[in-house]
Amino acid sequence: MIEVNNVTFRYSGEAEEGIAPALEEVTLRIDEGETIALIGHNGSGKSTLARLLAAIVLPQRGSVIVDGLRTDAGGESLWQIRQSVGLVFQNPDDQLVTNTVIDEIAFGPENLGLPRFEIEERVEEMLDLLDLRPYARHAVSDLSQGQKQRLAVAGVLAMRPRYLILDEPTTMIPGHTAEQLLETVRRLARERGISVLHITHHMYELADFDRVIVMNRGRVLLDGTPASVLRHREELERAGLGLPLITQLGQRLRARGWSQLPEVILTLDDLKAALCSLK
């Protein structure tokens, strides 16, 4: 379990310039096996929260506790936290360290000082899990952007984290590739009990997550199931977020007299099912 208790974080120099903190009085809890979508406008504090959870930056007020270990405790516990909280960034080119697929997957396990046979085992496992087997001997520079992002996820998962944070991993890859990546990650979360925190600004990606957290100006604005969050249309719009197109369509149909339709429709399949049930 990750606990974020009353966390306030400000980047250095921002106080003098009168800029509001990146995060202010944030409190939340992430349970094991939960899949969460964290959504917010640019500058809402999403990425800062991701870095706090992975102990890359430390809170100035409040605390972040990962499986009983405080991120600001220092020493060996910092590395234990970084091992159990895996972080995947937006641009794969910024996070891939080596230049071959196998070496990249092995980089994290090597840092953990694991014996060779175990590193080999994890590399083999990740090649299959993320469908990277055909590219095993390829140079990283020969991969497409989507393949690179899968490799970045494989490199992080090879460290066997309990929590996986994806910081806008779908921004730089085409729609269908992004969908496949998210589906793979959700499947892994289900099969292995890994908690997933997916940071995004695409509202249509929320539907398949257990929980949605909406951030605005460094604070948690809404927190609940996708359906319960999407009921707060006005608050979302004030935070610069529009409803997904399919939800908007459902609401327009309701406004035109189809009042038996549910208030919030998340997917096209939901809409089809709802329309069919009307007959």
Binding site: R82, F89, I102, E110, L114, E120
Partner: peptide, 26 residues
């Protein structure tokens, strides 16, 4: 890019200059 890469490396437990740290090799 350099800043992002060093953050990504640290997030993957790369501990350059950290006493007592030993990397293993594939």
């Amino acid at each position: 890019r350099v800043e992002m890469l060093s953050t990504a490396m640290e997030a993957r437990c790369y501990r350059a200059g950290y006493r007592g740290w030993r990397r293993s090799k594939l």
